[in-house]
Design a protein around this nucleic acid. Sequence first.
DNA 1: CTCCCCATGTAACACGTTACATGATTTG
DNA 2: CAAATCATGTAACGTGTTACATGGGGAG
Lengths: 178, 178
Amino acid sequence: MAIKFVILGFLEAESLTGYDLKKRFAASETFHWSGNNNQIYTALVQLYNEGLVNKEVQDQESGPSRKVYSITPEGQTVLRHWLLTPPELPQLRHPFLAQLAWADGLTAVELDNLLSQYENEVYVKLRMAQEQAERDAQQLPRRTPREAFLWRQIGNYWVAFYQHELDWVRRLRAEVIE
Amino acid sequence: MAIKFVILGFLEAESLTGYDLKKRFAASETFHWSGNNNQIYTALVQLYNEGLVNKEVQDQESGPSRKVYSITPEGQTVLRHWLLTPPELPQLRHPFLAQLAWADGLTAVELDNLLSQYENEVYVKLRMAQEQAERDAQQLPRRTPREAFLWRQIGNYWVAFYQHELDWVRRLRAEVIE
DNA sequence: CTCCCCATGTAACACGTTACATGATTTG
DNA sequence: CAAATCATGTAACGTGTTACATGGGGAG
């Protein structure tokens, strides 16, 4: 489970609760686990059982007691080991391409409509990615300049991806009309 | 299950067996179900139960009897309906970005090594996508010129995607060294 | 003699999403 | 007064991957 390593990464910078992690995950597509309760909380239990994180329970007057997790030396070792692991290729799921593959069953107008809808959706996503990147850029100054650089590049990656997608669909739309 | 619609798409062009479909799926990332036995055979059973495909059983002297599936009029209606369905955004899983996010724990050499490995992997993938696109271009002349055009664009999409990825990592690698 | 192709299917597991469950405090 | 935030967790479901199981025929 890659999610475990990512949690260790977050915890190396600072101690966090499950809830904090949930927000971190939700904030970037890079950590695509969509702020998923289920996986985060069970991963934390497993990491704890494996001795890769410590848990500090803070009782509160109201609500469930907070559990603040921090990374252990073993956890740091495991994280470092993962960092040296051979990189995985990205996995792109593109159901719209599958739809296009059979779209010859549509009229010219229907097809243009479909492409236009897609173009709009991508445009919205691109804007969101741009705003996110700008927000991140404000918050940045991370631990080292190199780390800040890497995070900026990652943010830009998503902007570039959606920009590339937008260019692609616009070109396609223009050409299919002719 | 999107796989059902994709199967209907293949069957609209020609009648096929599960095994044939498996090969079709394996041939393109657009149909990302990786030539998956499990999902194809169960989807075919479901499509049959829903009356969207016909099944012609051909007994053979050796091996299991072939089952040739063809689309029914209801299947064609369902397929057409799916084609008009609002497009879905692509979903990109990029574990390497998560790895990079914490890569400040690595030395300059280790990081460059990691990026270099990734560059190579992407390069190989790009070449594969290019060869696939060329092979497809030969086979093409599909049912209509517009369909041939769409398939060419889909093939090019994958080439462009990996090219874009390669450019990104090369630029990153050059900049991180400075 | 081994490996690949044909051709069907099942089982187990891993991963991911959505919804359910609870309940106080703060913000609009 | 409603909604969001804080804070924990569980259950059900859907999707996707890998491995298992069988077995004949042909190519190298």
